[in-house]
Design a protein around this nucleic acid. Structure first.
Lengths: 184, 184
DNA sequence: GTCTATAATCGGATAGAC
DNA sequence: GTCTATCCGATTATAGAC
């Protein structure tokens, strides 16, 4: 990939997209400045004009992740299937744009240049608040999140979806519906 | 750390312990041969006598991980608190030796030298089989695992334990007990 | 805003002494 | 079985032309 994928997008965004793809494919060690530049269709020098260092590049990625995931979480508040089903669906579909960002960030976890863990904690915390806004029992809300995060973990290791996963989602949704019926 | 931590253990094990610690602290990029050797209290040459390459070192780590996690899973079959509580406890305690290995392996996910994901999938699959041996409803068994894996994910990003987590575990245990009572 | 060329450093791996 | 010395390729970053 030596030609620039999309010229309508700003270069910054194209570079971050390239970084995301490389992180998903080969982890943090595959995401060298040269490789990212090549995948984005720019030169190393061109990349370094937009992000002055590897640290700045990583930070730019985390900043975008937070903006994206907050928007995604907010969006589910008005989702027809409800927040619960929406979160569990998002978590289990590794091709979802928002999920891709989170999985890429998880592959970045542990690097010294930036606080990846802090950004991820912030993102997950925001999701919890959104879920808890719809389920008044905090324990149940947390259970919903943990099931979703379990699905995230399995997406991270590329595990094939269990036959049971769909039924687990249905079961959790039912659990929430049951709770809501009790409350009135 | 330039002195060898424990001379009673075989050097191979000391080296793998050092690798594990470095992976947890700084991700895969921090686990250079030089750094691992230093943390283990041997020279680079000394390390390379036991593991001929970085690939061999990583593979040795994954091999040990599988042996350890199978033993851990088998051990819970006879645990007094039951498999369910045992898995959820293990998943949430980041200092547990077995959990440390899994978290370190997760930080290694994405490297090209070895099939980290494959090893992790195998480990999680084994755990599922152990859990499913005690809970005859496969959907419920999978739900238990996903909650535990959600806890793993939060341990991976160093997220502080939610106040609700203990109650979530209790709730899941109750869910399983309820199911068993129905079956008889 | 994007490029090429190059400097400086680091990481993996080999050879051979002890 | 462990060490030191060394080579080579890869990676980050800078300088300066276009």
């Amino acid at each position: 990939m030596s030609t620039r994928p999309d010229r309508s997008k700003p270069t910054r965004e194209v570079v971050l997209d390239a970084l995301e793809t490389l992180l998903l494919e080969g982890g943090s060690s595959a995401a060298t400045l040269e490789a990212v530049a090549a995948a984005a269709g720019v030169s190393k020098g061109g990349l370094l004009y937009h992000f002055g260092s590897k640290e700045a590049l990583y930070q730019g990625f985390l900043d975008r992740l937070l903006v994206e995931s907050r928007a995604e979480a907010d969006g589910t508040l008005t989702a027809p299937e409800g927040v619960v089903a929406a979160y569990l669906d998002v978590s289990s579909v590794a091709t979802d744009p928002s999920t891709r960002s989170v999985l890429a960030a998880l592959r970045l976890a542990g690097v010294q240049e930036v606080d990846v863990e802090g950004a991820l904690v912030e993102s997950f915390e925001y999701w919890y608040e959104v879920i808890a806004r719809r389920i008044d029992d905090p324990v149940l809300a947390r259970l919903v999140q943990l099931v979703g995060d379990g699905l995230y973990l399995h997406a991270l290791i590329g595990s094939v979806q269990h036959d049971e996963d769909e039924q687990v989602i249905a079961r959790v949704v039912a659990l929430v519906a049951e709770h809501e019926a009790e409350q009135g």
